[in-house]
Computed example of a mutant assay.
Amino acid sequence: MSTVRKVGLVGWGAIGRVVGTALAEQQVPGAELTCIIDNRPLGDTAPAPQRTFDEALECCDLIVEAAGQGVVREWGERVLASGTDLLVASTGALTDDDLSKRLLATGPGRVYFTGGAVGGLDLLQAVRSLGPLDEVRLTTTKLPSTLEQPWMDEELLSKLRTATGPVEVMSGTARDIPVKFPKSTNVAASVALAVGDLDAVRVRVVADPGARHTRHVVEASGAHGAYRFDVAHLPDPGNPATSQVVPYAVLRSLAALAGRTGQIL
């Protein structure tokens, strides 16, 4: 493998634009933006050539997914089978057990995921080595408009649209919730991947019309201790379903994969 990671970026939206611009400006040592994959014409403003997926696999050794869970489902195995590594931002796709097993079994490319909008995952992974956690809870609070989904009935939509304070939209496990909210609850999947058990993580999704910030509260406890992480992010102005910090989490993961030293990984 070359010393410089040749990156193909999937998606030129709220996450992809930040990641792609930083790569094009050489802000990540050891990584260069080789091409962009998107199903919309990007014109002359994109900082790298637009390529098809198949073309990208010919010239890249790392694909960065920043376009949604569907990309991971449709292309993940083909990327890895080609010998290209895959960095997944839409971790909700990995709550599909069959898909996750197939990705882990496919190579020679390797699959990685980024923690996105939540912290403390490294500590949860460390605690997991001591023994199972007795309880893991995640409460995600967002603006009601970012949580509306095609499957919702009129009663639930009305509840969201007329809310004057926080209202619970849905509760379930980290296996269930990311399927229902594919663009809004990747954090649930990230926490579950760190804990190692999709069904052990209980998730509440709350709509709050007064939520200036997107909030994620993780609470975990077990025989070895108790842990709480509370993060509040400004939503991305172009896509309020995504927190502004997410592309920078992707860039941090990219920097680690590119071999930058002197950092806590």
Score class of each variant (00 low, 15 high):
residue 236 D to I: 05
residue 257 L to A: 08
residue 156 L to Q: 13
residue 132 P to Q: 13
residue 248 Y to D: 14
residue 213 H to Y: 09
residue 57 L to H: 15
residue 264 I to F: 15
residue 183 K to S: 13
residue 170 M to W: 15
residue 112 Y to E: 04
residue 142 K to N: 09
residue 238 G to S: 00
residue 112 Y to I: 11
residue 94 L to D: 00
residue 254 L to T: 03
residue 40 R to W: 07
residue 173 T to Y: 07
residue 114 T to Q: 15
residue 189 A to K: 05
residue 204 R to F: 05
residue 242 T to A: 05
residue 22 A to R: 03
residue 35 C to F: 04
residue 202 R to K: 15
residue 76 G to Y: 00
residue 47 P to I: 07
residue 58 E to T: 14
residue 111 V to M: 03
residue 24 A to Q: 07
residue 215 R to Q: 06
residue 114 T to R: 06
residue 169 V to L: 06
residue 89 A to W: 15
residue 93 A to L: 02
residue 5 R to Y: 12
residue 196 G to N: 04
residue 19 V to A: 12
residue 258 A to W: 05
residue 245 V to R: 03
residue 49 P to V: 10
residue 87 L to Q: 09
residue 60 C to E: 06
residue 56 A to M: 11
residue 141 T to P: 04
residue 164 T to H: 10
residue 231 V to I: 15
residue 95 T to L: 02
residue 28 V to S: 00
residue 246 V to I: 01
residue 130 L to M: 08
residue 221 S to W: 00
residue 106 T to W: 03
residue 206 V to A: 12
residue 185 T to A: 03
residue 225 G to A: 14
residue 178 P to L: 08
residue 262 G to S: 07
residue 234 L to Y: 11
residue 84 T to D: 01
residue 228 R to W: 10
residue 30 G to F: 02
residue 53 F to G: 14
residue 186 N to A: 02
residue 214 T to V: 09
residue 99 L to F: 01
residue 87 L to H: 10
residue 215 R to I: 01
residue 252 R to A: 09
residue 108 P to Q: 07
residue 137 R to C: 15
residue 216 H to K: 01
residue 38 D to E: 08
residue 227 Y to Q: 02
residue 52 T to N: 02
residue 131 G to D: 01
residue 6 K to G: 08
residue 160 L to I: 03
residue 61 D to W: 04
residue 125 Q to H: 12
residue 183 K to Y: 01
residue 20 G to K: 06
residue 71 V to R: 14
residue 100 S to Q: 11
residue 121 L to A: 13
residue 158 S to K: 04
residue 252 R to I: 11
residue 46 A to K: 10
residue 48 A to Q: 05
residue 34 T to W: 02
residue 196 G to S: 06
residue 129 S to L: 04
residue 95 T to C: 00
residue 84 T to A: 07
residue 223 A to N: 08
residue 231 V to Y: 10
residue 79 V to Q: 12
residue 20 G to V: 07
residue 127 V to G: 07
residue 119 G to Y: 04
residue 12 W to K: 10
residue 28 V to C: 10
residue 190 S to M: 05
residue 57 L to K: 08
residue 127 V to D: 10
residue 53 F to Q: 05
residue 40 R to T: 02
residue 39 N to D: 10
residue 161 R to A: 02
residue 183 K to F: 10
residue 238 G to F: 00
residue 192 A to N: 00
residue 237 P to F: 08
residue 238 G to C: 00
residue 29 P to Y: 05
residue 253 S to R: 09
residue 205 V to I: 15
residue 223 A to R: 04
residue 45 T to K: 14
residue 133 L to M: 12
residue 257 L to K: 13
residue 208 D to S: 07
residue 99 L to P: 05
residue 263 Q to I: 13
residue 147 L to M: 00
residue 214 T to I: 13
residue 77 E to N: 10
residue 131 G to H: 01
residue 248 Y to N: 14
residue 210 G to A: 10
residue 205 V to D: 01
residue 227 Y to I: 06
residue 70 G to H: 12
residue 110 R to L: 03
residue 254 L to F: 09
residue 46 A to V: 03
residue 243 S to R: 00
residue 68 G to S: 11
residue 31 A to M: 13
residue 196 G to V: 00
residue 165 G to S: 11
residue 47 P to W: 07
residue 233 H to F: 08
residue 43 G to Q: 08
residue 217 V to G: 02
residue 35 C to E: 07
residue 198 L to T: 09
